[in-house]
C-alpha cells in the first residue's frame, strides 16, 4: 500500500512539474483515520496525497466544478471512479481529453471508525480501473459479486404490503439532505428537479409521501445509468439501503432489455436512452 502511495506521489509530481495537468484530485489525510478529497496544484505539495485503506470517496464528479479547464485535470481513479468518468463522459458532462486518469487498482476500503471493509467495496465488481492514462500499482484479482441481486430477490419475495412497510420505515428516516444525489455521478443534471421548488414538482415538507417521491424519482432517473459505486448508500447519514432500490431497477432493466452494466465504456448506450424496435413495451 505505501509503495503505491509513494508511486502515486511520484507520478503526481511528474505530471504537475511537466504541466501535463493543472491540478490533481486525490485523497488527503483527515484528522483521524478518515481521508478526504484533496486538490493538489503544486508539485511541492504532492505529499498531501495519500493512498491507504480508508480512501472512500469517489472523485470523478469534482470535474464538474471545472467543465472548461485550462489544463487537464489529474484524476485518481479506482474501478468505481473510472466508471463514474465514463458515466460523466456519456452524459456529456466531461470530455475525455480534459482529464488525465491516474489508475489505482483497489482491493476495497475500510470504514475509518469500525475498521471493517465497507459494504460498497464488498459488493464491488470492478476493482481495477477500466481506463487510465497511467497505472500506479499492479492489477488486482477481480472477484465479481455473484450476490449482486440477492438483496433484490429477497425484497421481491415479500408481499406488496411488506415491501411498502419496509420502505415506509426507511423513508420516514430520510432527512432530505440530498447527500445521495450530490455524491452520485449519475445525478449530474444542471438543475435538479428538486431545486425547482417554484415549479412545484417536489414538496419541500419532510414527510413520508414527499420523501418517497424524492427517493423514487431519483431512483428512476438514475435507473439504468447507475454505476453501482454505492456512494449514495455510504454517505446517507440515516442509513437508507439505497442500493436495494437502485439494483431493483438495474435488475428490471437487465431482464427487460438484456444484460447491461453502466459506465463500463462510453460506447454502449444505457438501455433506457436508446430505442429499439423490439424493445419491450408492456409497461407503456
Amino acid at each position: 500500500m505505501s509503495d503505491m502511495q509513494a508511486k502515486l506521489r511520484e507520478t503526481a509530481k511528474k505530471l504537475l512539474e511537466s504541466g501535463e495537468v493543472g491540478y490533481i484530485i486525490g485523497w488527503g489525510k483527515g484528522r483521524t483515520n478518515k481521508t478526504s478529497p484533496v486538490f493538489v496544484k503544486e508539485p511541492a505539495k504532492v505529499d498531501e496525497l495519500v493512498w491507504n485503506e480508508y480512501c472512500l470517496n469517489t472523485l470523478a464528479k469534482y470535474t464538474m466544478d471545472n467543465m472548461y479547464p485550462e489544463k487537464k485535470i489529474g484524476l485518481c481513479v479506482r474501478g468505481c471512479d473510472s466508471r463514474a468518468v465514463n458515466r460523466l463522459i456519456q452524459d456529456n458532462q466531461l470530455k475525455r481529453e480534459n482529464v488525465y486518469l491516474i489508475g489505482l487498482p483497489c482491493e476495497g476500503k475500510k470504514d475509518p471508525v469500525t475498521g471493517e471493509m465497507v459494504k460498497k467495496c464488498i459488493e464491488c465488481m470492478h476493482h481495477n480501473p477500466l481506463e487510465a492514462d497511467v497505472m500506479v500499482g499492479e492489477p488486482v484479482q477481480e472477484k465479481g459479486y455473484p450476490d449482486r441481486f440477492k438483496d433484490v430477490e429477497a425484497m421481491e419475495a415479500l408481499s406488496a404490503d411488506e415491501r411498502y412497510e419496509f420502505w415506509a420505515k426507511q423513508y420516514d428516516k430520510c432527512i432530505r439532505c440530498y447527500a445521495c444525489r450530490n455524491v452520485c455521478p449519475a445525478c449530474n443534471c444542471r438543475e435538479c428537479y428538486v431545486d425547482q421548488y417554484r415549479v412545484g414538482w417536489q414538496g419541500k415538507q419532510n414527510n413520508r409521501a414527499e420523501n418517497q417521491v424524492y427517493g423514487l424519482t431519483r431512483a428512476y432517473h438514475i435507473g439504468d445509468r447507475c454505476i453501482e459505486c454505492g456512494e449514495c448508500e455510504r454517505v446517507c447519514p440515516v442509513g437508507l439501503p439505497l442500493m436495494k432500490l437502485n439494483r431493483k431497477l438495474l435488475k428490471d432493466a437487465n431482464e427487460l432489455f438484456g444484460e447491461y452494466e453502466a459506465g463500463m465504456n462510453t460506447e454502449v448506450k444505457p438501455p433506457l436512452g436508446t430505442y429499439k424496435l423490439d424493445d419491450h413495451e408492456e409497461y407503456m
Partner: peptide
Amino acid sequence: ETAQKCIGCGTCTYVCPTCYCFDIEGK
C-alpha cells in the same frame, strides 16, 4: 480551498443542533 471538496448536500445543516434556517412553503 476549504469549499473545494464540499458536495453541497445539507447533511451538516440538518444534523447541526443550531442550524435554524427555514423556508416557508405551501401545500
